[in-house]
Structures are given as structure tokens and as C-alpha cells.
């Protein structure tokens, strides 16, 4: 086991996992918040578009989304996110498209988590905001959403944990993250079970504190009613 840690860049691979998780989480939070606003807005076209996005993306396998991003969009439509002439274009394109794919996929789940948060805000809050003359935008940003986020901490934590583990799918489009390195080590070494346990442990180390942090935050930040 010591040899494996010495010969392979296990920490570097997990760093890539964290990198993907971090940027995809930001992307998913931005897109997911926009979707959640669309789904609670008074405009029926926006509501329908938000619902359609969530239903289509949530019910499509992540593998399919990532292969589509890489093979379909990058290689067949030839839409590059990195300069194709640069000496690291393949690596950069793979990482960036993986972040796009992961963000797009998890945005659907973030949207639903936030919508459940919106439902924890009593209707009276929206009515009171309207009564004191706030517009839809103002009541959303000043009254509803701050409470909705605090009510949605626990489900958002679950989405983040799922996202951390789902970054392993990015190895199929060539991103050098943890599960990709695991496949490489298993190809070369024969201690496949021990290697598997090592990587499983790595993911537990990443996700267990995330879960505990979000549980603590959900209790601390919950709106006391």
C-alpha cells in the first residue's frame, strides 16, 4: 500500500475531485437558484421552462450528459472551452466540460432543494411583503429567498455529497480524478481490493465532514418559528 501511495499521485487525483466538486457546486448553485426563482415566479412561461429543465435533466443519466458534453458538443459540434492550439487543450477542455456537465446536472437537484426551502416559508411572509409595497423581485431577494436558503441547508448538503461522489463519472471523458487513477492502478497492480478500499476511504474522508457540517449548519441556521 505504501508503494502505491509513493508511485501514484493519489493526493493529486483527490485534489482534482475537490476541484471539480468546488467549481461544479458553484455552477450548480447559480443555475439552480435561477431555476428555483423561475419555478416560483408568477410568469407561467418561466414556470413551465423551469419544470421542463428539471424533469429532463433530472431523469437523464449523468454519464450520458458528460459523454454528450465531450463527444457531442466538443468533438462533433467542435465547441471548445479552451484554445484548441494550446498544448493542454485536451486536458483543459475535459475539465471545463466536466464542470459544465456536472453543474447542469446538479442544478436540477439544487432547484428542487431550494423549492422545498421556499415551501418552508409561511405564505404570510409573502403577503406581508406584498402589503408593505415590495415588488416580486424585492420580496424574493429580501424576504423569501434568505429564509428559503436557510430552510434548504440539509437537502443542499445531500446534493453536495452526491456531487462529490458523482465527479467520478468525469473519468469517462478523460479527467484525471480519483476513480480514473483507481482504474489505472488496478490495471498495473494486482492488489485491486486494497486499492478499492483506499479510494473508498478517500471519498468517506471527503463526504463525512461535509455531511456533519451541513447537519450542524441546518440546525444552527434554521429559522426558528
Amino acid at each position: 500500500m505504501g508503494e502505491i501511495l509513493r508511485d501514484y499521485d493519489v493526493l493529486g487525483a483527490f485534489w482534482m475531485t475537490i476541484y471539480l466538486t468546488f467549481f461544479s457546486a458553484i455552477g450548480a448553485l447559480v443555475i439552480g437558484t435561477i431555476l428555483a426563482v423561475m419555478r416560483v415566479s408568477p410568469v407561467s412561461v418561466l414556470r413551465a421552462a423551469g419544470t421542463a429543465y428539471v424533469n429532463v435533466i433530472r431523469n437523464t443519466p449523468l454519464t450520458l450528459i458528460l459523454v454528450f458534453c465531450s463527444l457531442g458538443v466538443l468533438y462533433i459540434l467542435e465547441i471548445n472551452l479552451a484554445d484548441p492550439q494550446s498544448p493542454t487543450s485536451i486536458r483543459d477542455n475535459a475539465i471545463r466540460w466536466a464542470i459544465v456537465g456536472l453543474s447542469v446536472y446538479h442544478a436540477a437537484f439544487v432547484c428542487e432543494a431550494l423549492r422545498s426551502g421556499v415551501n418552508t416559508v409561511p405564505l404570510g411572509q409573502a403577503e406581508a411583503a406584498r402589503a408593505i409595497g415590495l415588488t416580486f423581485g424585492q420580496s424574493l431577494t429580501q424576504v423569501i429567498m434568505p429564509q428559503a436558503f436557510r430552510g434548504a441547508i440539509a437537502p443542499l448538503g445531500s446534493v453536495l455529497i452526491a456531487l462529490t461522489k458523482n465527479t467520478t463519472v468525469a473519468s469517462i471523458i478523460g479527467v484525471a480524478e480519483a476513480s480514473g487513477l483507481m482504474k489505472e492502478i488496478m490495471e498495473n497492480e494486482t492488489a485491486s481490493f486494497a486499492v478499492f478500499l483506499l479510494f473508498a476511504l478517500g471519498f468517506v474522508i471527503l463526504t463525512l465532514p461535509t455531511g456533519m457540517l451541513f447537519t450542524w449548519m441546518s440546525q444552527r441556521l434554521a429559522v426558528k418559528r
Binding site: S89, I90, I173, G174, K183, M186, E187
Partner: peptide, 26 residues
Amino acid sequence: KGSTSAQKVKDKYPGVQLQEFATYSE
């Protein structure tokens, strides 16, 4: 991804960029 051929390219030909997929069909 992870195949012996992919690793050999990475080790022996550093000037080469390598796209790795799950299967050769891709």
C-alpha cells in the same frame, strides 16, 4: 482511461496530448 497503452503514451511521449475515454468506440 487507465489502459497500458494510455500510460505508455503519457510516460514516453510527453509532447503528446491524450484524450481518454471509457471505451475505444468513443
